[in-house]
Design a protein around this nucleic acid. Structure first.
Length: 554
DNA sequence: AATATTTCCAG
DNA sequence: TTCGTGG
DNA sequence: CCACGAAATGGAAATATT
């Protein structure tokens, strides 16, 4: 099939707002795609490459096509373009694969040459689509969720069958190939049978179960009771597959990081089971059992074993909380209580997440307080009856974290994109510096803003713009500095070290709660107050705990 | 050795 | 993360 | 009430280029 057909379908999808209409349009084109090209078509239509990544990013695209030009609605700088569509899906996919296969010295130049070659064979519409695909910014209003429905529609099977195959195989393109690929005819009964035959495979990652959130433990217990209440560890999510003596470790996004975390594989070998698929969290701990800053865990999990590393290699500690498969038995559909009981039966106590099962809000709140006192992020409140509903942001799991807030000053704002076009969106946040009387920038946030708030802040910030903005001639792009007068209440998850900002610290996951018109810049929180919330690595605060305490529930 | 680019992580 | 929209 | 997609950050490591 021509790439152009998929590009045209994507444009149609972007042009309608309803999900059903989008599903319809994607299903229509999928019905026309030859069986052997289904995986490519589905990858492209859900905003992915079949190769995941190929070493082409924003810079390479800008070099080739010039910077994004808002007035023209795209990139205009010239490279050759095809007059008529000729590229097939297979050819485009193969060309992208060629680009990704390059490595070593000279590879960037070579990638750019190949990229120019590919884009030169594309029409304007195709080129625009490929650029958005490579930039990871399809913006057609449909990603894997909508495309999953479309696959079901095209194959004439229940959406649940596609979702299940997607969950268990970890790949939507694979699920689509199962339903519509060469191995099955275009017969709904056959397709459904093939989808239902997809099973969890040890060594192939499944999509991880996600959690909703609630402001307090009591609120979470109102939705789930009795519930298992578990420590929420501030590390990286890991899915561990053990097949005899072979172990593989996957991240939340299903990347294989086995080679980087040999100690986790080692830990998995201590389980009393030959085959197992487990879900858990890995974290770098201090000797006393408290968690190190997230940055330490993150850096540790990102570094290869053979690389010259600066500083010590802090080992990661594994906390397991779920079991999806044990010695030939799939547990994905079993109740959580059974999965955990089997986990506890095969895992040394030290590898299992601290938890309590309770229906008592007081007891749960107390456990939450203990988790936080031990330096952890909070707790996850889990149904004891639910299955492992992978990929669903359902309510079988609810996370609860303490909420920190600061009153900060808006120093500048940036014009928004997409549906925030024409609004001042991304806010530069500053804390008061009593030493200088000035403001210290701590980071930015665009989160937590309602449309009403966006409208209000755009008007108010333009009044405060310094120098004043000629609104009528504004390009709707760039940074608008403002007089530091507006105070905003911001929630955040923590304070972390920063090389980017002058204060040396920045906020993790800052989001706007509300404006504080009752406060002026002199009432804002100080940089000293922010720094006081930061625990640099190597100096765990004085609230020491016994290492055993961090591992075991009180 | 220092800098640029890409990718991946968290939510 | 949060929000708004669709269903 | 749930599912979905969009808003676009910031740190850090690996890999390439200078």
């Amino acid at each position: 099939m021509l790439l152009d057909s998929v590009v045209a379908a994507s444009a149609d999808v972007a042009a309608v707002s309803g999900r059903l209409a989008k599903t319809d349009k994607i299903a229509s084109v999928l019905r026309e795609v030859p069986a052997e090209e289904i995986a490519v078509a589905v990858a492209f239509l859900s905003g992915d490459l079949t190769q995941r990544q190929i070493g082409v990013g924003y810079a390479a695209l800008s070099d080739l096509l010039g910077p994004y030009d808002a007035e023209a609605g795209g990139r205009t700088a010239g490279i050759r373009q095809a007059a008529t569509p000729a590229l097939t899906l297979t050819q485009a996919d193969a060309a992208l694969g060629e680009i990704g296969a390059r490595s070593g010295p000279g590879s960037q130049t070579e990638r750019r040459r190949l990229l120019a070659d590919l884009l030169g064979r594309a029409t304007l519409a195709e080129r625009d689509f490929l650029v958005r695909l490579l930039a990871g910014d399809l913006r057609q209003g449909a990603l894997d969720g909508v495309v999953a429905d479309a696959i079901a529609r095209a194959a004439g099977v229940p959406a649940a069958a596609v979702r299940r195959a997607y969950q268990l195989s970890g790949s939507l393109a694979a699920a689509a190939a199962t339903a519509l690929g060469p191995a099955v005819g275009r017969d709904p009964a056959e397709a459904e049978q093939a989808l239902l035959a997809v099973r969890l495979a040890v060594g192939r990652p499944v999509r991880p179960m996600l959690a909703a959130s609630a402001p307090t433990v009591s609120a979470a217990l109102e939705r789930i009771s009795p519930a298992a209440v578990e420590y929420k560890i501030d590390g990286i999510r890991v899915q561990v597959h053990r097949q005899d003596r072979q172990v593989r470790v996957f991240t939340r996004t299903l990347d294989d990081i086995t080679e980087r975390v040999p100690e986790l594989a080692q830990a998995a070998l201590s389980l009393s089971a030959r085959h197992a698929v487990l879900d858990g969290e890995a974290v770098a701990l201090y000797p006393d059992g408290r968690p190190r800053p997230f940055q330490v865990t993150s850096a540790r999990a990102a570094s290869q074993p053979g690389m010259p590393d600066r500083g010590e290699r802090v080992p990661l500690t594994l906390f397991l909380f779920d079991l999806l498969h044990i010695d030939g038995l799939d547990l994905v559909d079993s109740p959580a209580s059974e999965r955990f009981a089997r986990l506890a039966a095969i895992a040394p106590a030290g590898l299992v997440i601290p938890r309590v099962v309770t229906a008592d809000a007081g007891e749960a709140e107390e456990f939450f307080a203990t988790a936080v006192a031990h330096g952890h992020e909070g707790v996850v409140v889990k149904s004891v009856t639910g299955p492992y509903g992978a990929g669903r942001r359902g309510s079988e799991w609810i996370k609860v974290k303490p909420r920190h807030t600061l009153d900060l000053v808006v120093l500048a704002a940036e014009w928004g994109h997409g549906r925030r076009h024409g609004w001042l969106s991304n806010l530069h946040l500053g804390a008061r510096d009593p030493a200088t009387g000035g403001m210290v920038m701590l980071g930015k946030t665009f989160k937590g803003l309602t449309d009403a708030l966006l409208a209000w802040q755009t008007e108010r910030l333009l009044e405060l713009a310094d120098p004043p903005q000629p609104v009528a001639t504004t390009t709707w792009r760039g940074v608008v500095p403002v007089r530091p007068e507006l105070v905003v209440e911001v929630a955040f998850d923590g304070v972390q070290a920063s090389t980017r900002y002058p204060g040396g610290v920045t906020l993790r996951f800052a989001r706007v709660l509300r404006y504080r018109p009752d406060k002026g810049p002199t009432d804002a929180d100080t940089i000293d107050a922010v720094r006081a919330l930061w625990t640099p690595d190597g100096t765990p605060d004085s609230n020491l705990v016994n290492p055993e305490d961090a591992r075991s529930a009180p």
